[in-house]
Nucleic acid binder design. Sequence first.
DNA 1: GAGTGGTCTAGACCACTGC
DNA 2: CAGTGGTCTAGACCACTCG
Lengths: 255, 255
Amino acid sequence: MDDSGKLCSNVIHMSSDSPTYSPLYRQIKTLLVQALEAGEWRPGELIPSEMELATRFNVSQGTVRKAIDELAAGNLLLRRQGKGTFVASHNDPRAFFRFLRLVPLSGDIEPSRSVPLECWRAKAGTEAARVLDLKVGDPIVIVRRVLEFAGKPVVADEIYLPGDVFAGLTLELMKESQESLYTLFEARFGVRMIRAVERLRAVAADRSSTELLHVAEGSPLLSVERLSYTYGDKPVEWRRGLYLTQDHCYLNELG
Amino acid sequence: MDDSGKLCSNVIHMSSDSPTYSPLYRQIKTLLVQALEAGEWRPGELIPSEMELATRFNVSQGTVRKAIDELAAGNLLLRRQGKGTFVASHNDPRAFFRFLRLVPLSGDIEPSRSVPLECWRAKAGTEAARVLDLKVGDPIVIVRRVLEFAGKPVVADEIYLPGDVFAGLTLELMKESQESLYTLFEARFGVRMIRAVERLRAVAADRSSTELLHVAEGSPLLSVERLSYTYGDKPVEWRRGLYLTQDHCYLNELG
DNA sequence: GAGTGGTCTAGACCACTGC
DNA sequence: CAGTGGTCTAGACCACTCG
């Protein structure tokens, strides 16, 4: 029992009838999430082995294992046999299509390209404040960009971000980086998107989208409103995308 | 080692270097799925306890537990502490919204009602045969129905089913049953939908949908094409729905 | 109280990776 | 070869449900 630095093991072996009972492995899970949140290990990095964590938290390896199992199931961690357990990253190709469900109607994978158009600062209105859990008037960043597939514009996005977290975000930064937006966010701002909720509707194309997507006014477009969360279920991105579903569709697996 | 009736334990404790190596708990999992497929336990029923299955398969309780864990994660089984493990059923309210992602834009849960319109038999064309894994000319059943929320039509569905499996399906049967279609399917035809893949697009309303959904021709509608699978990844339902997203939206969680 | 699933442990061995 | 995660076991005890 050393508690040598870092997060010490405030783990409790409780027995029954406590109103706040939580199994050991869940406490370990919480401690691990806190460590991730605190940046003890960055995305892509290797975390300590199960045995090391077991001694650190003063539990058996099996208990650590169960905690890691759940985190891996939630895509927070990534296990690789023989190598170790890593912090999940949007850089990983396996994680890329988790948040972009658009696929060509017929045919194979197409190269995609993000084209940033604008990036400016503003103050949060009532709606932005509500969904991003800010106060009205708090600084926000607004980004507009287009996503191209095979050279053709398919998605027009408008993205709202909390200004304090993304203080240094500029149009140039997005233009320079060839990676996905989420990769940029996690590499430059330490913000990793964990999960998101999307609301889909069919809408008619308005003026601005007709120009960006080269379609007639009134054409049906798929409106995708997304709220993304980072560690601790904190909302950190609100975006609205208009998807042209002439040659693509939104693919969804119901499990 | 008794092998008393039913599926006997052809489980192999393999050691390394076999080209077809599969861990014990996966073999157990396969055996359990086969038992489900064979109808040894029907939806909603209690399956034997972990200890019973362990002796039956000649493995430890922990190994059975891991197999059941995965089946429960895949929504094939449902664990209930203190009671036992049950075969998942679409009758369970917890499973109801797994396949219907439509929610009111603002406001609370609305009562929904399925209104069957037509039900007729036909021969599979090339497309129906392809997606349902049938031969061209095989019998199929086609159903048209409308889904109402709060008394207003919101979804117009066209459903294609393999004719041999759903031989006794009639319009009257659907009108009589107050349950969901999938509940009817599993109760009357022993077909349980396990998972599905949906393809979403925005389209313009055509003549027939304008009548059913009371919208102007050309209005944007959400087209949802769904292919549903039962045990063994066998496709057993193809449906195309047109969703009116004036007051509702399709909700999707990205994990 | 008996029976179920849920947690936790300790130890053995296997499969994979990289030095 | 050593170190990692992955599997399997056996046993103890806890939490929940029901008769």
